[in-house]
């Protein structure tokens, strides 16, 4: 299994060297993450400190991204916002990944009716638009992070199940699985030891797409007021607040908006690049 992990890593680095766009995306992403994680430690100010500056002031050396309607420095809020949005999305997606992998493996291993039912349910779930799910969840669980996480899980679970299922199905029919079965290995062992390592590449790619989707959902729901509640900043809720002061303080909208778009863009490009590296398009077209 060590050989498997090595090749994924080497595949990734090979892909980065071949595709500069993807490398830039990865770099930007890493930078954003560092800034977000180290946020509290950086000397950029306290995101929740009210009234330390003039209200709705444009960007200046003292306030690099201006200040918001409560006199808070905007820069730390945006930074905090990235972190919150990312955290929520990442938590949800990790959960989904694990859940989806398990369900997908079970479906692929047992095949037959279990598989059909799982596939149908996944398709049905995938058809639901996230905002609608969000409306429902928020009215039941109340707005907040938990609601958002539930929605993200529901929205991205089908992606994982689908991918895991299709890869696992193609592996399940190969000889080494049959050999293991004949040798008496338990289903769990077969799934963990044989199917899982082969899935890693596909899982990682799905991970990036699910992450970008998760961030979209989180910020969308926060924008509607259904997500992260004040005073914790989320890029979505920052946008919503900023929208009301759009005419007089456009930076309150541009900063979180551009940051959000760039982050998601970086994740998407990363995912694209990884996908092309691990699974390039077949053949070549004629002249």
């Amino acid at each position: 299994m060590d050989a498997g992990r090595n090749s994924i890593l080497s595949q990734c680095s090979k892909a980065m060297r071949a595709d500069p766009l993807m490398a830039i995306a990865a770099g930007v992403l890493a930078l954003l993450l560092c800034v977000g994680v180290l946020g509290p430690l950086l000397p950029i100010g306290d995101p929740t400190a009210i009234g330390i500056g003039p209200r709705l002031a444009p960007p200046s050396p003292a306030f690099p991204l201006g200040s918001d309607e409560l006199g808070r420095s905007f820069l730390p809020r945006v930074v905090g916002g990235i972190l919150v949005t990312f955290q929520v999305a990442a938590t949800a997606v990790l959960l989904t990944g694990a859940l989806g992998a398990v369900i997908g493996l079970i479906a692929a291993y047992y095949r037959g009716r279990v598989d059909t039912i799982v596939a149908r349910l996944a398709d049905a779930l995938f058809a639901f638009p996230a905002i609608i799910l969000g409306l429902m969840t928020a009215s039941i669980l109340g707005p907040g992070d938990l609601s958002v996480i539930v929605v993200i899980v529901a929205a991205t679970l089908p992606l994982f199940i689908r991918v895991v299922r299709s890869v696992a199905l193609s592996i399940a029919s190969r000889e080494f699985v049959t050999a293991a079965e004949v040798a008496g290995a338990s289903p769990v062992r077969i799934m963990a030891m044989h199917m899982l390592p082969n899935l890693m590449g596909a899982l990682i790619i799905q991970f990036t797409y699910a992450l970008s989707l998760g961030m979209l959902i989180e910020s969308g729901l926060s924008f509607l007021g259904l997500g992260t509640q004040p005073p914790y900043p989320s890029l979505g809720s920052l946008l919503q607040l900023g929208a009301t002061y759009l005419a007089i303080a456009p930076w309150l909208v541009f900063a979180p908006g551009v940051t959000l778009a760039l982050t998601i863009l970086a994740i998407n490009l990363l995912g694209d690049g990884l996908r092309h590296a691990i699974d390039p398009l077949p053949g070549r077209a004629l002249k």
Binding site: L21, S212, L216, S219, G220, F223, G236, L239, G242, A243, L246, A247, P250, V253, F254, G257, L260, A261, I264, L265, I267, N268, L269, D272
Partner: peptide
């Protein structure tokens, strides 16, 4: 590719808000 990714990555409320600003 870049433009396509950008279009797909910008959430509709971000784009909408920016458009609202620009056109106001």
């Amino acid at each position: 590719r870049l433009l396509g990714a950008l279009g797909a990555s910008t959430p509709d409320f971000v784009l909408g808000t920016i458009l609202v600003y620009v056109f106001s």
